[in-house]
Write a protein that binds this DNA or RNA. Structure first.
Lengths: 159, 159
DNA sequence: ATGTGATTATCACCCTACATGACAATCACT
DNA sequence: AGTGATTGTCATGTAGGGTGATAATCACAT
């Protein structure tokens, strides 16, 4: 009765990328969940782990999310003890966000998890194919002016 | 001051796929917006255009969304005249959803638009590269048991 | 020094989308 | 005729982000 014939758009590059991408994001979030980490929180902490001084505002700019939302995000991370707010000495309006040792450990754990996830997702591909795929994706990302490490989902309309 | 060095996960396949995929979904939605069509509505109408008899329930199963949500979706599509509800003769509880001529025209328009979007997204790739990318993505999709034409975002938890 | 406007973080409110559970109508099966 | 399942609808609740206002501080001009 219901026609199982796939619709026309199903083979388009845009749809395939979107479909596989959404699945990857889902897997990513699911694998992180047992650690109590959301993808967004990981994105934040990973940037902190890279060094440099970050205020809430600079993090919001970096990740492309609104500062109002950053409040709750940092609140949650501070509550579980992965991050600390410290008054900036140069600008006493601002908080400097610092990773705690516990937060640093989580970042390391998730980084290892990412390797597992890649292995899981690309299980059907040879090493050469994986490299080719990554290369093609990077080309597309650059062409679309996507910032490395910044997920578009986080990017609201930040004027 | 903020370190522009990309974080480690930025080069992982899972992240790249998710990142590029989210961007494609965004472009897709944006290009459809002027027509007044949401991706979800297009998915529904495209399945109708493929023929066969569809009730709200069968469409909900097909797209992986909850039947309660299908109510509002069909309401909206009926309101703009792209779809019609007709009582099924075999099961008078159910509505058969039919594409109107206007709806059929929209599907044709969007299908052409999808070709444009592919062209836009894959602008930096040669024909051979596009084909290779599509092939790799299909492999991943099959390996992940993704149903052709069904976007995971629509799939809630439909037990 | 002082006043003016911008920046930072926070808060309170709204609005949308989805999930959930209850409901009437109809069906399938006994 | 009776029982349970299915279909569509509706009325909730809830989680999430968007928006605007606010207090504190800064930067800059006078």
């Amino acid at each position: 009765m219901t026609a199982p014939e796939p619709t026309r758009y199903a083979g388009s590059l845009a749809f395939l990328l979107s479909q596989v991408g959404a699945h990857c994001a889902h897997v990513f979030a699911e694998r992180l969940r047992p650690l109590g980490v959301t993808p967004r929180a990981f994105g934040l902490m990973s940037n902190l782990a890279n060094g440099g001084n970050h205020t809430q505002q600079s993090l919001a700019d970096l990740l492309g999310i609104h500062r109002n939302i950053m409040v709750g995000l940092v609140d949650a991370l501070e509550r579980v003890g992965w991050v600390r707010r410290e008054r900036s000495q140069r600008d006493r309006r601002a908080f400097e966000i610092r990773l705690t040792p516990a937060g640093s450990k989580i970042v390391t754990q998730v980084n290892e998890l990412v390797d597992d996830i890649d292995e899981e997702i690309a299980a059907g591909l040879s090493g050469a194919e994986r490299q080719a795929l990554a290369s093609l994706l990077v080309t597309l990302a650059q062409r679309a002016s996507l910032v490395p490490g910044v997920h578009p989902h986080l990017r609201g309309l930040t004027p």
